[in-house]
Amino acid sequence: MSDILELLVSAASSGCIYGLVALSYLVMIRPTGIINFAVGEWAAVGLFAAFFLLTNRWLPLPYALALIAAVAFTGLIGWGTQRIAVRPLVEKGAPILGPILALLGMLAIFRESISLIFGPDPHNLPAPFGLRQVSLGPFAGTPRDFFIIGCTAAVFVGVWLFFERTVWGKAFEAVALNRKAAALMGINLRRVTVAAFVGGAAIAGFAGVLYSLTAPRDFLMGLPLAVQGFSALVVGGVGRVEGAILGGMILALAEQLTARYADQIGIPSGMSLGVPFLLMIVFLLARPTGLLRPKEAAA
């Protein structure tokens, strides 16, 4: 029994990271329809920015400040990416595939730039936590796990409130529902796109920082993270913010439960590597909208 409670904490913290990456995709897809696979590289930008801010010899920042500054910097990178790879194409009337491919090109630029600046060695983000297991009620995990879960919860609550309670959030939804009508109603499409990319990048950057708390990471960290996040998005659905975290949690649980228990029912545990893809295939076939549908569609 204690094993499963331990596993739940570990899966929840992994699920939070996947969920944040899924949320980053979602924030951009909803208003623009653009799937941005560079989110993994943005996560790497966030992590390496945090690493630099924490460990540089000129002006090392205090921990919380460094994390906030790194996330803000990634948001800025998101703005720049949007300005270079999305806006010119959209304004020239390119089909949606145009920016998606341009963003794939940006992905390679980010990855190689990080490799050039920081070298290819894995970098250990300093963290003010020990590795000893601590208990929170019946649940046991490392302080890192609980930190990741707490931070993710805060981000999701914040984004949920943004969509549900602010005019800006309503504008996002309006654009998602009907781009043309929203524009006619006086919603500035360009501003919504900018906000989506800045927000998406900041969330991805934060996911990268949390991801690196689990182990040292190198410049190649983006792709596996982008794939996991995308799987979580497919499972949870692009319609609602809650879908992203739900998808992340389901994915991480499925992964870790198979790694732990699958061989007891005769499935080799190596199969857990295929779980994200299996889940993605199942959902694409059976429920392509994901678990949670947009409210209007559900109503």
């Binding site: 331990e6 596993l7 992994s14 689990t214 596996p224 991480a252 790694a259 545990s269 190596g270 590597l273």
Partner: peptide, 20 residues
């Protein structure tokens, strides 16, 4: 015999198995 996959976020399930 346990495998940690590239990009994983945790090796707790694998190590639980080893411990068991």
């Amino acid at each position: 015999e346990e495998v940690v996959q590239r990009g994983a976020t945790s090796a707790v399930p694998q190590m639980q198995k080893v411990r068991a």
